[in-house]
Design a protein around this nucleic acid. Structure first.
Length: 627
RNA sequence: GGUCCCGUGGUGCAGUUUGGAGUGCACGCCGCCCUGUCAAGGCGGAGGCCGCGGGUUCAAAUCCCGUCGGGACCGCCA
């Protein structure tokens, strides 16, 4: 046993895992740290997970094992029969495949579970399989024990199943899980959990569990409710996050808390959203933003390193305002340029009506794609822009001679056209898109178009982490003219803006921050308000009177009267981080038993109706369906 | 709540535009042959409520309406 920590994906030690060749096959789509081009002679130094039934793992055997008598256990991945005298069986466990040479008649079919005992020998000359990690050797003189027979699987348990209807994969999830892809993804997930836990412990965070059954606090996401049997008509809520409890842990003197916490939100599902998901949830006392960002960065970078083998650089920061200004979104994807360019001054004196008087004119340059955008695609882009809230979209194709091919070109004087080309660094063949509107609208519309036109799949290319800081305290106003909190109502205002709370609330920044990776929001956090007076000031702004605040948040507010430390925290989504690191575009691929977009589980058929007796015990009656 | 895409033997597809016999391909499955294969090969065979319901038609996988299921997105996710 080695003292150094192992790769939790493949159980190899750090010294070896960077050299580990794929042991399943070269057809698999993704490899994390595998590189089959490397030298293979010192490939694999693995713990053998020997048991009373086996001596070695299938995928771990190497030429250095030649001569050993071994026992391996696993599933029949493939068989190649040559009559009753000879057959090749590829036996699979989670470490990979090994070829077993079987003489005589054995009824070994797909997915039969078998124990095979034999002698490891180098393969005969000319039969080495370079695409297998175990391809230099095979197990000969085999004794075959069938441990379980199996019906043929409904889909092939290899890379071909990537194309199988996801509903079928989910119905037979336990079979899907046998595949290399899901084995790797879930082991990457385990590696992330482990690295995160170690990073937090190393930094002095204590792991504390918080309740799953808590009072309903209807702000924010829709909650799952759990009826109380003892008090019919009353309900628990499942936590959207441990937010309130973790702040109380700070009041309780824990100083540094973390938890890999299950969170539940009854909102519609997406590629990056499930009802239940896991967060690294953390909170710290006597800190400011820099402390929190540093601690969380440590966990994220450790997690990334554990999966990819490479530690990312320090995570850069960008303010919310700059993110909106340059990328038009609060979760910028920094893997590609196409930045929003400020054009307002160019058209200060313009005679073009759509631009004249607009408070913000911005544009993006879509390099080299003028050709591709004919009239119908440009009309579709314009529709898209309008749906996103713009009054319109000005498009221009840069012709070979540099002139602007656009229905509005005739409204722009030559100096304006030249300044526009210069500002956007336009080249012949480029498509230019311009929006003139309020600053926020111009940014948001172009930000969407930028993502639509330029964004690679989330898992492609380099990993670009970024902290987005200085979020606005309030976003928009309610119908009654009351500001709406951008993060949550316990978020601390930016210290430089506190004086403006009442006079200019919409321009108050908060001490709230997001972590973004490749355009996906990984998580968010904030420095909190720990003084009851400041908290009530915020509630006043939000139109919540003191008695109302006590009614809604009483159990949370009372503790702060007993001495709360300055504190702040963060939470990021484990599922999303793992998905990106594992090269997946959908978090269902990194969850063992996920639900479909409609919230059902094809394997267990949940949710299901329950017996009338159960409802009776809970004091519940189900209403008839409304037509 | 909304928009768009997809439902054809166990799996993946073609067929739908322009209606004409469940017509076809690949994999898998079952049987036989085969002593160096490796997503083995050869021969043979079985397997279909064309998601479901209704309509149009002499005739519907194909056209129309509805519905169910899956997926992507918008709303929503403090």
């Amino acid at each position: 046993m080695r003292a150094r920590s192992r790769c939790a994906i493949c159980a190899a030690t750090p010294a070896s895992y960077a050299w580990r060749a794929p042991t399943f096959s070269t057809r698999s789509r993704r490899h994390l740290h595998d590189d089959p081009r490397r030298e293979r002679k010192e490939l694999f130094v693995s713990e053998t997970r020997a048991t009373t039934m086996r001596t070695d793992m299938c995928g771990a055997l190497r030429a250095t094992d030649a001569g050993r008598t071994v026992s391996v256990c696993g599933w029949v991945a493939r068989r190649r029969e040559h009559g009753e005298h000879l057959a090749f069986i590829d036996l699979r466990d989670h470490t990979g495949l090994v070829q077993c040479v079987i003489h005589g008649d054995h009824d070994l079919r797909s997915e039969y579970v078998a124990r095979i005992t034999g002698v490891v020998r180098p393969r005969p000359e000319g039969t080495v399989n370079a695409s297998l990690g175990t391809g230099d050797i095979e197990i000969q003189d085999c004794i075959v024990e069938i441990l379980a027979s199996a019906e043929p699987p409904p889909f092939p348990l290899d890379a071909r199943a990537d194309d199988v209807d996801e509903n079928v994969r989910l119905r037979f999830r336990y079979l899907d899980l046998r595949r290399e892809r899901l084995q790797r993804n879930l082991r990457a997930r385990a590696a992330v959990n482990s690295a995160v836990r170690r990073a937090m412990e190393r930094q002095g965070f204590a792991e504390v569990e918080t309740p799953m059954l808590m009072p309903s606090t209807p702000e924010g996401a829709r909650e799952f409710l759990v009826p109380s049997r003892k008090e019919p008509g009353s309900f628990y809520a499942l936590p959207q996050s441990p937010q309130l409890f973790k702040q109380l842990l700070m009041v309780g003197g824990f100083d540094r808390y973390f938890q890999i916490a299950r969170c539940l939100r009854d909102e519609d599902l997406r590629a990056d959203r499930q009802y239940e998901f896991m967060q690294l949830d953390a909170e710290m006392s006597f800190v400011d933003q820099d402390d929190v960002l540093a601690a969380i960065s440590e966990a994220v970078l450790d997690a990334a390193e554990a999966v990819t083998g490479e530690r990312p650089d320090a995570i850069p920061r960008i303010t919310w305002h700059e993110a909106m200004d340059r990328y038009g979104v609060d979760k910028p994807d920094l893997r590609f340029a196409m930045e929003l360019t400020e054009l307002t001054p160019i058209f200060a004196e313009t005679g073009f009506k759509a631009f004249a008087g607009a408070s913000s004119i911005k544009g993006i340059r879509v390099p080299g794609r003028a050709e591709e955008f004919g009239r119908s695609k440009l009309d579709a882009l314009t529709d898209r822009a309008k749906k996103l809230g713009a009054k319109g979209l000005v498009w221009m194709r840069v012709a070979a001679d540099g002139t602007l091919d656009s229905p509005v070109a005739k409204f722009l004087v030559e100096a304006e056209q030249q300044a526009l080309r210069d500002a956007l660094a336009a080249e012949p063949g480029d498509l230019l898109l311009v929006v003139a509107d309020e600053w926020a609208t111009s940014c948001e519309v172009l930000g969407h178009l930028r993502n639509d036109l330029g964004r690679p799949p989330v898992h492609k290319g380099p990993y670009k982490y970024v902290w987005v800081v200085d979020f606005p305290m309030f976003v928009g106003v309610s119908d009654a003219g009351i500001p709406k909190p951008g993060h949550h109502p316990f978020t601390r205002p930016h210290p430089d803006d506190i004086d403006k709370l009442e006079s200019d609330p919409m321009n108050v920044r908060s001490r709230a921050y997001d972590l973004v990776l490749n355009g996906w929001e990984l998580g968010s956090g904030s420095i909190r308000i720990h003084e009851p007076e400041l908290q009530q000031r915020i509630f006043n702004l939000l139109g919540i009177a003191p008695d109302e605040a006590m009614k809604r948040f009483g159990f949370f507010l009372t503790p702060f009267r007993y001495g709360a430390p300055p504190h702040g925290g963060f939470a990021f989504g484990i599922d999303r981080l793992v998905a990106i690191l594992a090269g997946e575009e959908n978090i269902r691929e990194v969850i063992a038993f996920p639900k479909t977009q409609s919230g059902t589980d094809p394997m267990t058929n949940s949710p299901t109706p329950v017996d009338a007796k159960q409802l009776l015990d809970l004091g519940l009656r189900v209403l008839p369906k409304v037509e």
